[in-house]
Structures are given as structure tokens and as C-alpha cells.
């Protein structure tokens, strides 16, 4: 069912929704960018319509809501253990773009369909409904079309704001009442989506990838020096799922503490450290290889249907060294074609 609501009445809709749901969406955090007098666009709980940032692309993703950056799993003291409460127990609506909605399926695969399901992920996941933000235009570095994530068909409702009005396509029946309760106009609405991006990628087909050949390929060597191993690409990626465990003993009382899991990055030092002081991927080019292959080869090999990468291009947006992940996919394509022809 489609609805059109004047922007001035949006606050009322948000109020109604907030009676039953937490509402998470991209927000503009004034002055909180990495440089002075710049803003940070990231997810937060919105309180009113003007909190919504639907113009700019977010630098960080919705995954923070689903897999908290630093999540306490349980508390321990002497011989007792207590599972930590979930950070929210209320149902929530999460506003995402099409690429990110596709990313959700990658996260689900890793956390729920990859052996036993993850308890902590599931208890948060079960509370979430997703709202599709339509894309009127492609942003810098987006390559969703080639990754086939530019269009989404399933969502709780969709939202597009243009010319002072908000357009909604409500799929979830339980949510219809909120739209009926405010001044709205029924109409045929379908969310906007882009059909072309400036950035294009050519994806190597898995059968062309000879791991032994590509592992030692010289294409990775340029990243040894160019990449600084900061991890921004992973932390901004909607499909990166790695974390590391930390056991913490409280400073005042060393008999009590907590275990938490904290996001990890395959680009940051320490990720492949093993007992005895070894590390499997010391060179940043090798880490780049691991990441690229995981995103456009390994994942697909395991889960069949899709590549892990959904083409949001945030890794390219945030890289301080101007390394383009999409271009590295193209380089991989060229290298594997060459490898086969040889």
C-alpha cells in the first residue's frame, strides 16, 4: 500500500512509530567528522523527522545496531557467570539503502546460517524490521548495479523524500495503522533505485580463480606500501563481520570482569597473530588480497548465491590513502583472465 505524506506531517508519523519502535537511521553528527568543522554521518536513534539524514551517504553502516562495536557477552566473578542483557529489547525500525538491505543477508549468512546460529546476533536481529531508503541518484564510488544490489523487493516500508513530500510503500501490514493515523494520501508508490553507476566492476568468475596463482600475484605488492593498515575499509563495510574476544578484569576488583567481543579488521596489525609471535599476513598487500578474495570469491564459494561485497563503495569513500577497492576487483579480474589464458 502506498502513501504520500507532506514533510511537515512527518514528525507525527515518527512520533507514532516511536510509541512502539526504536527508530534507527543515518544521522548527521555536527562537528564530529575526523577533521575540524566537518560532520559525521552515521547511525543513531532518531527522535524527529529532521534527525533523518537521507541526502548524504553514511560513512558507517547499520551493522552497529545488529552487531554492537563493543558488546559485552557475559560478566564473571569467581565461579559465577551472568549473560549480559541485550542493549535493546524493544522492536526497532532500521532505515537502510538497497545495498545495505542486501548486506543484511550476508550478515545473516555468517551469523545464522554458518553452523550454529549466534545467540547474541539472533536476539538483536529478531527485533529488527528494515525500511528501504530509495536512491534517487548514485553516490561517489557506488557500484551496486554491477553487484546486483541496486534493487530491493522486500522491506517493512520504503521511503523517498522529494519536493517536500515523503513517499512510502508499506509492505508490512502491521505497520499500515501508523500511516492511516496521520494525514496521508493513498497512491501507487514504488521506491526509487538507480540503474547505473559511474564506477563499474568486472567480477572474476570463481572457476577462473586459481588460488595458488593469485596468492603470489604481483598485483598485491603495490598495496604493501600504499595501504597503512588502518582498517577503515572494514569498519565501514556493511558486510564485514569479524570480531575479537577480550576478557577484561575490572581495575578495582580483579576477581570480577567481563568478556566482550569487539570488531576486528583483517587489515589491522594483530589479526593473524598466533601463539609464539607468528603472524600469517604481515604485508598489507597480503591482507588486501585476503580481503578482496573474501569479498568477491571465498564467500560466494561457500554460500553460492551471491558475492559478499554489495558495492556500497564506503571502503573507497573512507580510505585515507585513496585505495580503490572497486579498482582492485577490476585488477583481480584482469589478472585472473591473464592467468587462464597463459
Amino acid at each position: 500500500m502506498g502513501y504520500i505524506i507532506e514533510n511537515k506531517n512527518l514528525d507525527l508519523l515518527i512520533d507514532k512509530l516511536r510509541e512502539d519502535y526504536l527508530v534507527y537511521a543515518p544521522m548527521r553528527y555536527k562537528g564530529q567528522g575526523e577533521f575540524s568543522d566537518t560532520d559525521s554521518i552515521r547511525y543513531g536513534e532518531i527522535k524527529k523527522a529532521s534527525d533523518l539524514e537521507l541526502e548524504a551517504k553514511s560513512e558507517h553502516t547499520f551493522k552497529e545496531i545488529l552487531m554492537p562495536i563493543s558488546e559485552t557477552l557475559f560478566y564473571y566473578t569467581e565461579d559465577e557467570v551472568k549473560v549480559a542483557e541485550a542493549h535493546n529489547t524493544k522492536e526497532a525500525l532500521v532505515f537502510v539503502r538497497s545495498c545495505d538491505l542486501h548486506s543484511l543477508s550476508r550478515l545473516d549468512n555468517i551469523y545464522l546460517n554458518n553452523g550454529f546460529g549466534d545467540f547474541y546476533y539472533k536476539r538483536l536481529r529478531d527485533k529488527l524490521k528494515f525500511v528501504l531508503i530509495g536512491c534517487e541518484k548514485s553516490y561517489d564510488n557506488c557500484f551496486c548495479v554491477d553487484m546486483e544490489t541496486n534493487k530491493s523487493d522486500k522491506y517493512a516500508f520504503s521511503i523517498d523524500i522529494r519536493d517536500g513530500k515523503a513517499y512510502f510503500d508499506v509492505q508490512e501490514e502491521a505497520l499500515l495503522k501508523y500511516f492511516e493515523s496521520v494525514e496521508s494520501q493513498k497512491a501507487d508508490v514504488s521506491p526509487l533505485y538507480v540503474t547505473e553507476n559511474q564506477t563499474r566492476v568486472k567480477l572474476p568468475s570463481p572457476e577462473n580463480i586459481d588460488v595458488n596463482f593469485i596468492n603470489d600475484h604481483e598485483l598485491w605488492r603495490e598495496y604493501d606500501k600504499r595501504c597503512i593498515g588502518c582498517g577503515r575499509c572494514n569498519f565501514s563495510c556493511p558486510t564485514c563481520t569479524c570480531y575479537t574476544m577480550q576478557d577484561i578484569f575490572y581495575q578495582d576488583n580483579g576477581k570480577a570482569g567481563e568478556r566482550r567481543r569487539v570488531w576486528a579488521s583483517c587489515m589491522v596489525d594483530g589479526y593473524t597473530d598466533v601463539a609464539g609471535g607468528g603472524a600469517y599476513r604481515k604485508r598489507n598487500g597480503d591482507r588486501m588480497r585476503f580481503k578482496v578474495l573474501h569479498k568477491v570469491y571465498d564467500y560466494k564459494k561457500r554460500f553460492k548465491d551471491n558475492n559478499m561485497c554489495t558495492g556500497c563503495g564506503r571502503c573507497d569513500d573512507v580510505c585515507p590513502e585513496y585505495i580503490s577497492f572497486s579498482n582492485s576487483i577490476n585488477k583481480l579480474y584482469d589478472a585472473t583472465k591473464g592467468g587462464r589464458d597463459d
Binding site: S36, F235, Q251
Partner: peptide, 30 residues
């Protein structure tokens, strides 16, 4: 780093903001 998270000594700090510029997470902000 204390328990794997940063502790900030404001007395020593000269306010250069390098921690903010180098933080990949917006954990440090201005």
C-alpha cells in the same frame, strides 16, 4: 591502553587532535 581501550591524560594532552584524525571509528571526536 587500559583493558584494551584508551585512557586519556588531559593534563598531558596538547589538543593536537591526532587521536581524532587517526580514529577509524569516530570513537574519538572533537
Amino acid at each position: 591502553m587500559v583493558n584494551n581501550k584508551p585512557e586519556h591524560n588531559l593534563e598531558k594532552c596538547i589538543g593536537c587532535g591526532l587521536c581524532v584524525v587517526n580514529c577509524p571509528m569516530r570513537a574519538w571526536t572533537r
